[in-house]
Simulated assay, not measured.
Amino acid sequence: MKAFIIADSHTGTLRPTEVPAPPPPGNDQVQLELIGTSINPIDPLVAKGYGAPLLNTKRQVPLIPGRDAVARVADVGKGVTGLRPGQRVLVAASPRTGGTYAAVFNLPRKCVAPIADTLSDATAAGLGYAGLTALQALAAAGLSADNARGKLLCINGASGGVGSIALVVARRWGATITAVASQRNQDWVRRLGADQTVDYRDPAAMAAINADIILNFAAPGDNHRQNPLLDLLRRRDTPGRAYVNTTNPVLSSVTDKGMVGGLATSGGIYLKKRLAAHQAGIRYRWVLFQENAEQLAYLARVFADPDTPSIVSDRQPLEALPEAFNDPKGPPSPGKGVFMVEAP
């Protein structure tokens, strides 16, 4: 069967090839036929060995990457409930599990949720991994559909895949949102529901952001030592302040120092930052992706609503996946680009 593999972790180059079909699904596994997928920024990094002591402990090559997909159930293993062959599903797998860049693949049941007919293939193809990361960041900040209304929220990196989905969900929950993005992506984040927009290159505008909760999805600067948005929260004297960061140094630390040294280093950084934030009255959290079928099902319901804005900015045939994956500039922005088995 057709798959896209990483044969050399030094170059991390993705290429198409033929591989044996997977075995029947094991206990609590689902066998899936690919309909469409996408690229997450972590995928090309993992392909080159980033985070390998934690994410690819056996240094396995060839490696079939891929974190999310829309797929059709081909078969279910023993113990699987709530799914049947022929059903369309939303897929999100951790970098340790992965493998969606193949015509057929097996995943644990917790990576899969059924979807309604009103959720398009294109939207579902790019929703899973970034969407779960967004939901888990919102939860880490203490936000939910029950309490978000009227909260002042700033999303840094709002035009990326995770930021776009977090913006849509938080807007649905009623939060007042300041979206930080490049000037060229200001219209994109406004369409998704941002109340205010800020260009991250404008220091004065960044310093004037009015927010009590900050979700940071942007790449860090200066090895996580400089953080003007966290400094902004320190200057405020309001209840419920929170700072959540998905671009934390856990994976970079284990890449450089191995499992034990990397976890010890990043853990020390986290504890120091969390303690300092706590002393200033700020809730401080890092978020690492977790597989979660219930949260996937929630995302599927939200984005099946015809009133929900689309987070897909580009749609290409599956054959275009290697070129985009191997592009040193990384996945396109804004939102999500998707790659479909059937040409657009």
Rank of each mutant, 00 (worst) to 15 (best):
V19C: 10
N40Q: 15
P239F: 13
S159M: 07
A93T: 09
K273Q: 15
I177C: 06
H224Q: 10
N227C: 11
A124T: 03
D231Y: 09
A343N: 12
V250D: 13
K2G: 02
G258V: 06
N40P: 11
G268L: 15
L55G: 08
S310E: 03
I165H: 05
I35Q: 09
G128N: 11
G335N: 04
A304D: 05
L215P: 08
L152V: 06
K273D: 14
G262N: 04
A134I: 05
M1E: 02
P220Q: 10
S266F: 02
L34I: 13
G128W: 09
A194D: 10
D314H: 00
A7V: 05
L152S: 15
T238L: 13
P344M: 13
Y200Q: 03
A264R: 14
P344F: 09
S252H: 14
N210T: 15
K329M: 12
G193F: 14
R88L: 10
G98M: 01
A140C: 13
G174T: 09
L138N: 01
A52M: 02
D231I: 01
G26N: 11
L107D: 06
A166R: 07
L215V: 10
L215Q: 07
R149S: 15
A324L: 15
L138W: 07
V341I: 15
L263A: 13
E319T: 15
P203V: 05
K336C: 09
R109Y: 00
A125Q: 03
G157D: 06
L132F: 03
R283A: 10
V341T: 15
A211E: 11
L296S: 01
R88A: 12
Q295K: 03
A170E: 08
L152K: 15
D8H: 04
G86Q: 06
G174K: 10
T255I: 10
Y101R: 03
E342Y: 00
D187F: 08
N40M: 14
V73H: 00
G221T: 14
A130Q: 11
T176W: 12
T133K: 10
T247D: 11
D195V: 13
G66C: 05
T247K: 11
K48E: 07
V287H: 12
S333D: 05
A175T: 02
A3D: 01
R172H: 12
G12S: 05
Q136T: 01
G131M: 04
D231N: 15
A170K: 00
L138Q: 01
S144T: 14
G335L: 09
I213H: 00
A194Y: 08
A137E: 02
I35V: 13
L296C: 03
P331V: 15
A297F: 02
T17K: 08
D202M: 04
A276H: 01
A21W: 06
G128K: 07
L192G: 10
A264T: 14
A166P: 00
N106V: 02
A179F: 08
G258T: 07
N27S: 08
R72Y: 04
A130F: 08
S159L: 11
P53K: 02
Y243R: 07
A277Y: 05
P44R: 12
P53C: 10
S9M: 11
G161W: 02
I64W: 03
A122I: 01
P41G: 15
A134E: 04
R88I: 02
S333Y: 06
A242R: 01
G49W: 04
G261A: 08
